[in-house]
């Protein structure tokens, strides 16, 4: 038996059955033979029980809308990268698109040109959404769910677009993307309200 009383570290090792602690066996034996250390161990158990019984704290605010906003913003960034535009590049690419469109008759567009048109429409819609600044507005839950579903479908299209080489197939996908972007913009513009200030 050890002559001095146990340290807190030894008491904790006994409480937790931590045999990796040096002299665990001695400490364990000491508790069995020393009233003082047994009492300390009891108090340690009681203190732990009191810690576990502390009242549970609950958040004052629902943080999920903020989480959702961040998830949506991040997806949007990913989407912008997928159509090959990011932030400042949007305006420049749009200017080219608008000029190009005036010069070409719709009935003479081949698949490549039609893809370019659909892509530019996609970009214009992204720009419109960017100007609308969805992050400064609040969507109700139903609208937020719709937004996320549409964004998922767009993300899915972007994956397929990246894997498709054939221009006819690409055109179909780009046109679907324009349709979804239109819906997305419409949901944002009709369902959002400004952040209250």
């Amino acid at each position: 038996m050890t002559t001095s009383h146990l340290t807190m570290e030894q008491l904790l090792a006994v409480r937790d059955g931590d045999r990796s602690e040096p002299a665990y066996a001695d400490a364990h034996q000491h508790v069995g033979e020393c009233d003082g250390c047994r009492l300390e161990l009891d108090r340690l158990h009681q203190r732990t029980a009191r810690l576990r019984a502390l009242p549970r704290m609950t958040p004052a605010r629902n943080q999920f809308p903020a989480v959702r906003t961040r998830v949506v913003a991040e997806r949007r960034q990913r989407r912008l990268r997928a159509v090959g535009i990011g932030g400042l590049a949007i305006a420049a690419s749009l200017a080219l698109v608008v000029m190009g469109r005036d010069l070409v008759q719709p009935n003479r567009l081949d698949a490549e040109q039609q893809i370019a048109t659909a892509k530019s429409e996609s970009q214009q819609l992204e720009q419109k959404l960017h100007d609308w600044d969805p992050q400064s507005r609040v969507l109700n839950s139903r609208a937020a769910v719709m937004v996320m579903e549409i964004e998922d479908r767009i993300a899915d299209l972007d994956v397929r677009l990246a894997q498709t080489q054939e221009s006819d197939r690409q055109l179909v996908l780009w046109q679907q993307r324009v349709g979804l972007m239109n819906t997305l913009v419409e949901v944002h513009l009709t369902r959002a309200s400004n952040v209250g200030f």
């Binding site: 502390l54 549970r56 704290m57 958040p59 605010r61 961040r70 998830v71």
Partner: peptide, 28 residues
């Protein structure tokens, strides 16, 4: 799970603001 997450965060962080940030960061 926001309740248990917040409780853990609040017991570890000093302020409610920090705990709320941790709650948001966690679910993000």
């Amino acid at each position: 799970y926001s309740g248990p997450v917040y409780n853990l965060a609040r017991r570890i962080c000093r302020t409610t603001e920090d705990a709320e940030d941790v709650l948001q960061e966690t679910f993000f």
